[in-house]
Amino acid sequence: MSDALLTVRDFSVVYDVDPPVAAVKDVTLELRRGEILGLAGESGCGKTTLAYGVQRLLKAPAVITSGSVVFHDASGADIDVNSLDAEQMRRFRWDKVSMVFQGAMNALNPVAPIGRQLEDVFEVHRPAMSRAKRRAEVAELLEIVKVGAARARSFPHELSGGMRQRVMIAMALALRPQLMVMDEPTTALDVLVQREILRQISQLRHEFGFSVIFITHDLPLLLEISDRIAIMREGEIVELDTAERIWTDPQDGYTKTLLSSFPRLTGERGVVVR
């Protein structure tokens, strides 16, 4: 079993509008097993398009124009994601790669209890599972993310934003995937709740060993939680390195600009001229 979990080669996505927009340009990257890879960049840089694209979650007018995505399964098999048919793709998603969506606060169905929504995952992907077993799995998941099994019958609006986000993480964790893609998972939360969720993500990663692609524009946060960071600009990865080297020795001019855009909590004054 190799060290790599996902190999992306020369991956390009074009939005086929007039004029066409090249959203992701020839991106090559290798995601390692068990690592947290941060994907940083500003609105429109292509970070979300890239993360959705490697799971073939994009809708028209987005078109994948080149590249290959190979998933190195824990079983030892190499899965060429581009060659899967619709049914194979359906099985692949969530089982191997799951997602925590942007704005997850509103990603839950408001008129169904959260336990019911978690059960859906098993009903679809594990049709042979008994109802009692499903319920037990859901209870366990809610305990793992510290929402508590007692809340299975709660509706989303009865939970705080942080709890809803934990339910989304429980849902992503349900089938024990090897990769979780997290798109701005803490952006709408305040700093204290954000910190708890981040702690939970790294603890779960240690426990279950999945890899994470963590998308955000919040570079200070990414520097703390990522093993490696890819900086994207206009569809290209301009720099990819360990978090520490991005911080101490950034090479690309744009990385430097991004780093200097953040007022430092404890650093020098003077970034805001007063």
């Binding site: 204290l192 954000q194 919040d218 520097l223 703390e224 909590l265 404890t266």
Partner: peptide, 23 residues
């Protein structure tokens, strides 16, 4: 921010991303 006295302020401060301190 640099020398918080109240426990709650300290908690907020500790929860805020701070790469300088982290590294």
């Amino acid at each position: 921010i640099l020398n918080p006295q109240d426990p709650y302020t300290r908690e907020l401060r500790a929860a805020s991303p701070d790469p300088e301190k982290h590294f």
